[in-house]
């Protein structure tokens, strides 16, 4: 999980860094190496570190997940994919598939909620209204806070008590007479994970706003004016002209938020701690490690990695191609 509440700022639709590729051809083979050799050398410490600590350790984890090391004293014997199949078919109480379901619900609510709020704020602020800077700064500030810190206050806000024992948001609802709104939040067996998405939405909507705002501002004024001259109303202007221009922004946002969501750990540990209702794979890994079942913890980690890779790898390849073409 990304350390900070902040999303990896990546997405990296890395704009072209067109290098003088053709120039290589002009020099001799020896000269070529002399030409780019030092660059590769400067890069090599980082490459070695990443080769070991990203790819090497992933390979190690995969190997562990295929081993029979289910306790602190077990030997590292090869067991094959049994641990993986057990997770899906023989996990006690179907705990793993339950945690995947939780993750799915969380991701859905988190993505939709953050996109909705972010785009709405960006639309409201788009036209350079007076005071925009203040609104923007305040909408964004939760991003500077860690999930661990914000979890403290959200745990208080989402107090499960109702009626006389109502606390946090429920107390407000109670006080306003909106008792039907009082709910157990993160303790609700079915919708607990949806409530868990609230702090995450609070924290990241500002980020989505900032990205879309930059996107809006990047659209040439001529486009808008042309549309206006064609007699397009505001709604059609956005639908037909502006939103299509923002598809890359939306894709970036979905990738960033999606991969953050898969790794969600800090927030859950901070708001509820480990527990059945809000368990996701990342927390399950931690819980499994505490019982020293290394193979199982590794297997869950590998599945988590695959979930992320299924989305990220095509995206990275696509980006790489786009760059090459430009």
């Amino acid at each position: 999980m990304t350390a900070s509440p902040t999303p990896s700022p990546t997405t990296a639709p890395l704009e072209p860094a067109r290098a003088p590729a053709q120039k290589f051809r002009r020099v001799s083979a020896h000269g070529r190496v002399r030409h780019w050799g030092p660059g590769l050398l400067l890069l090599s410490p980082s490459l070695v570190l990443l080769a070991v600590f990203v790819y090497g350790l992933i390979a190690w984890t995969v190997r562990l997940s295929l081993s029979g090391q289910h306790s602190a004293i077990d030997k590292q014997t090869f067991e094959g994919t049994k641990t993986f199949t057990n997770l899906f078919t023989h996990d006690i109480s179907d705990r793993f598939t339950h945690s995947l379901g939780n993750l799915g619900l969380f991701t859905l609510v988190f993505l939709l909620g953050t996109l909705f709020m972010g785009v709405l704020w960006a639309l409201l602020l788009e036209r350079k209204i007076p005071g925009e800077g203040i609104f923007r700064a305040i909408y964004l500030f939760p991003m500077a806070v860690s999930f661990v810190a914000s979890g403290v206050v959200w745990r208080w806000l989402m107090n499960a008590g109702t009626g006389d024992r109502a606390g946090g948001l429920n107390a407000i609802f109670h006080g306003l007479g909106l008792t039907f709104l009082e709910n157990p939040w993160v303790l609700d067996p079915h919708w607990g994970m949806a409530a868990m998405a609230m702090p995450a939405i609070w924290q990241l909507s500002g980020y989505v706003m900032a990205l879309f705002l930059a996107g809006f501002r990047g659209i040439p004024a001529e486009l808008r004016e042309a549309a206006a001259m064609d007699g397009a109303g505001t709604f059609r202007l956005y639908r037909n002209v502006i939103f299509p221009q923002l598809t890359p922004t939306a894709l970036s946002v979905l990738i960033i938020l999606g991969h953050m969501s898969m790794k969600m750990f800090d927030l859950i540990m901070s708001v509820t701690g480990p527990g059945w209702i809000t368990e996701v794979p990342a927390v399950y890994v931690w819980q499994t490690l505490l019982t020293s079942d290394f193979a199982k913890a590794a297997a869950i980690s590998v599945i988590l990695l695959l979930l992320v890779a299924v989305v990220i790898v095509p995206y990275l390849i696509y980006n790489n191609r786009v760059e090459r073409r430009s």
Partner: peptide, 18 residues
């Protein structure tokens, strides 16, 4: 560069145990 970037997206659980 693409291989480097991948390191940014991995769930760190997948390297944590080793």
């Amino acid at each position: 560069f693409t291989l480097i970037l991948f390191g940014m997206f991995i769930p760190y659980q997948s390297v944590m145990i080793p």
